Structures are given as C-alpha cells and as structure tokens.
Simulated assay, not measured.
Amino acid sequence: MAGQPDLGRADLVTMLAELTGKPATEVPDRIGSMELAWLVHLVEQRHERRLDLSDDQLAGIRTVDDALAVFRTALTVTADG
C-alpha cells in the first residue's frame, strides 16, 4: 500500500465518536470547526506527521467524506515529499 495512507471513513467516524461520546452509528456526517480541529489533531498524532492544510482545504471540509479526501491527499503528499 505504498503511497496510500492507512485512513478510512470508519477511522474518522470512530474519532468523532470519541469526541462526542456517542456511538459511531450516531455520529453526524456534518463536521463543525471543533470536530475538524479534533480530527486534524488525531490524524496528525496517528500518522506522526503534521498536515500542512491550506485555508481553502480547511474551508472545504464540511462532512466526514470531505475530511477523508483532504486528509488522504495531505498524507500522501507528506509521505511522498
């Protein structure tokens, strides 16, 4: 799996469940600024690297799927560069 980050939608939902104290099945798809900050922090910790996200990338994250796409791209770029 070279170049492909080990991060899936279920991982992000589990992280959000930890923040909210809700079961993963009850985690909403929409992400607010607090949830986004939490996810960035945990993804950086888990992958032991800083995500260099632009303001445009951050502003475009409104859902779990948005976050997954941006994080995977950032992790792939960081891993390759």
Rank of each mutant, 00 (worst) to 15 (best):
Ala17Lys: 09
Arg50Trp: 01
Arg50Gly: 09
Leu75Tyr: 09
His47Phe: 11
Met34Glu: 14
Arg72Val: 05
Val70Trp: 12
Val64Gln: 08
Leu68Tyr: 06
His41Asn: 13
Leu36Trp: 01
Gly8Cys: 02
Phe71Tyr: 13
Thr78Trp: 04
Asp6Ala: 13
Ser54Ala: 04
Trp38Gln: 14
Val40Gln: 10
Thr76Gly: 11
Met34Asp: 11
Leu16Ser: 05
Leu19Thr: 07
Val43Lys: 02
Ala67Asp: 09
Val27Phe: 06
Glu18His: 09
Gly21Glu: 00
Trp38Gly: 10
Ala10Pro: 00
His41Trp: 07
Gly21Cys: 11
Glu35Arg: 08
Met1Val: 14
Arg62Ile: 10
Arg46Ser: 13
Ala24Val: 07
Pro23Ser: 01
Asp52His: 06
Arg72Lys: 12
Leu58Tyr: 05
Thr78Tyr: 00
Ala10Val: 03
Glu26Gln: 13
His41Ser: 14
Val13Thr: 11
Arg30Leu: 13
Thr76Val: 06
Ala2Leu: 12
His41Phe: 11
Ile61Val: 14
Thr78Asp: 13
Asp29Trp: 08
Thr25Val: 01
Arg62Gly: 15
Asp29Phe: 11
Asp52Ala: 03
Leu68Trp: 09
Asp56Phe: 03
His47Ile: 02
Arg9Ile: 03
Met34Val: 15
Glu44Met: 03
Asp52Arg: 07
Val77Met: 07
Met34His: 10
Met34Trp: 04
Asp52Leu: 01
Met34Pro: 00
Pro23Gln: 07
Val43Leu: 03
Met1Ile: 12
Ala17Val: 08
Leu36Asn: 12
Gly60Phe: 08
Thr76Cys: 04
Lys22Pro: 05
Phe71Gln: 06
Ala17Thr: 01
Leu12Val: 01
Asp52Val: 07
Leu75Gly: 02
Val43Glu: 03
Met34Gly: 03
Asp55Met: 11
Leu7Tyr: 04
Ser54Gln: 03
Glu35Gly: 14
Thr63Met: 12
Val64Trp: 10
Gly32Met: 06
Ser33Gln: 09
Pro23Ile: 02
Ala74Gly: 08
Pro23Lys: 02
Pro23Gly: 00
Thr73Tyr: 13
Val27His: 08
Glu44Ala: 04
Trp38Ile: 10
Met15Cys: 00
Asp56Leu: 12
Thr20His: 05
